[in-house]
């Protein structure tokens, strides 16, 4: 099955991103295709590489990055939601005149059209949020 995943909450405060990660991993292991993981609302905060949890805790951000690397996942962060919340890639930081960028490996910033397109292309679009 071709599956799209929507993550609507940030890391740690809500379990949505953990659940989405576990679901995505399990779906891949079962042989399903993950077409795209789209991060919206506070979900964009799952993509900042400045995240540094205590050592005995999981690193939600790098866990996504590693999964993306291992399985060529398409992790897409909504640009409008990201700009509101201070998530920038290098190009965007330059364009906005910011002195830093923080997008983690394996993520890319793009538009909401990518979410709608996932809905069109996938057999299932699965939402993780409140």
């Amino acid at each position: 099955m071709k599956i799209g995943v929507l993550v609507n909450e940030g890391p740690y405060t809500h379990e949505a991103s953990d659940s989405a990660y576990q679901f995505t991993k399990a779906a891949i292991e079962k042989g399903h295709e993950i077409y795209r993981v789209f991060f919206y609302h506070d979900g964009v905060n799952n993509s900042t590489r400045l995240t540094e949890p205590p050592r005995d805790d999981r690193n939600i951000v790098s866990r996504w990055s590693e999964l993306a690397k291992a399985h060529s996942l398409d992790l897409v962060v909504c640009i409008a939601a990201a700009q509101r919340r201070g998530i920038m890639d290098e190009n965007e930081a330059k364009r906005q005149g910011k002195d830093a960028h923080n997008l983690a490996d394996g993520f890319r910033i793009s538009g909401l059209g990518q979410l709608v397109e996932a809905g069109i292309q996938c057999d299932r679009l699965v939402t993780f949020g409140d």
Binding site: I79, A80, S110, G111, L112, G113, Q114, V116, E117, G119, I120, Q121
Partner: peptide, 20 residues
């Protein structure tokens, strides 16, 4: 909001789904 033309690509072979 996004502006790139890639995002606007609606050529999906005419698939029309019911979105709610």
């Amino acid at each position: 909001m996004f502006t790139s033309s890639e995002d606007m690509d609606t050529d999906e072979g005419g698939v029309i789904k019911q979105f709610m």
